[in-house]
Amino acid sequence: MIPLASPPPLPQRAGIGLKPDHYRAILDSAAEGLWLEAHPENYMVDGGPRLAWLEALRERHPLSFHGVGASLGGPDPIDSDHLGALKSLIARFEPAVVSEHVAWSAAGGRYFADLFPLPRTDEALCWLAERIDAFQMALRRAILIENPSVYLPLKSEMDEPDFLVELCKRTGCGLLLDVNNVFVSANNTGFDAAAYIDAIPGHLVGEVHLAGHEADARRGANLLIDTHGAPVAEPVWALYERLISRIGSRPTLIERDANIPAFDTLMAERGRADLALARQLEAA
C-alpha cells in the first residue's frame, strides 16, 4: 500500500482553478477557506514569475495539482521527463492532492493536449490499473483519477461507475468526480446521470469538480462540449446537490479554463458551492 503524503488535506470547502489572470486578485483577497487547483504542466519551467506567483499563493492557500499530461490510459511508456518535472513540482509545492484523468493524450511520442477516451473493457481496465499503480509508486503517493467527458459511444463491457470503482479497488487511488462530465457524457452517450451519481460509493470520492459546458456549434444540444468556458449549468448544480446530500461535503472545485470571468464573478460561483457545502456540514 502506498503511504499518503503528509501535507494537510484540502478543506471541505470550495476552491477555484488557478489562472494567471487572477494571481493578483487572489493574493489580495481575504476569502476564507479558499483553495486553489493548478495544472502542474503550466508550471514546468526553470524559473520566472509563474513559479514565484505559485509560491506566494501557496503560502496562503492549500493547493491541488490536477495533471493533464500523464496519458495514463495511453500506449506510450510513462514519460520520464514529465514524471521528473511533476515530482520536482510536488516536492517544492507539497500539494494536498494530486489528480489525473481516465484518458490518454499521447502516442508515438506525440502529445495531443486533449483527453482521449478509452473503451471500458477488461483489457483497458487492466492496462489503466497497471499504469496508475506505476504512477503512484513513482510519485510515492495515492492520486485521484477523474471520470472523463465522453463524446463517442464506445462499445464497452461495463458501466463507467463500475469501471471507476474497480480501478480504485485495484490501485488504491481515489476518485475526482466531475459532475459536469457525468452530465455531458450522459447527454452525449445516453445514460441516466442521476443513476450514475447514485452509483458512486461516497468513500472513494476525494474531490468534486464543477464546470460549465456548451452546445456544439454544429450539432446543438445533442452534443455538449466540456469547454470549461461557461458558468456551471443548473442541472449540474442539481446533480451536485444530489451527490453531497448523499455522501456529505467534499472539497469542490469551480473549474474555468476559457472565457475567464472577473475574479469576483468566479468567486460568486465558488460561493454558491461553498454555501451548499456549509449546509451539508450543518445537516450532518
Binding site: E41, N42, M44, V45, G69, A106, Y111, F112
Partner: peptide, 10 residues
C-alpha cells in the same frame, strides 16, 4: 511539428 512534450508551455 506537433507537440512532443507533455506541456505546451515551451
Amino acid at each position: 511539428s506537433p507537440p512532443r512534450q507533455r506541456s505546451l508551455v515551451g
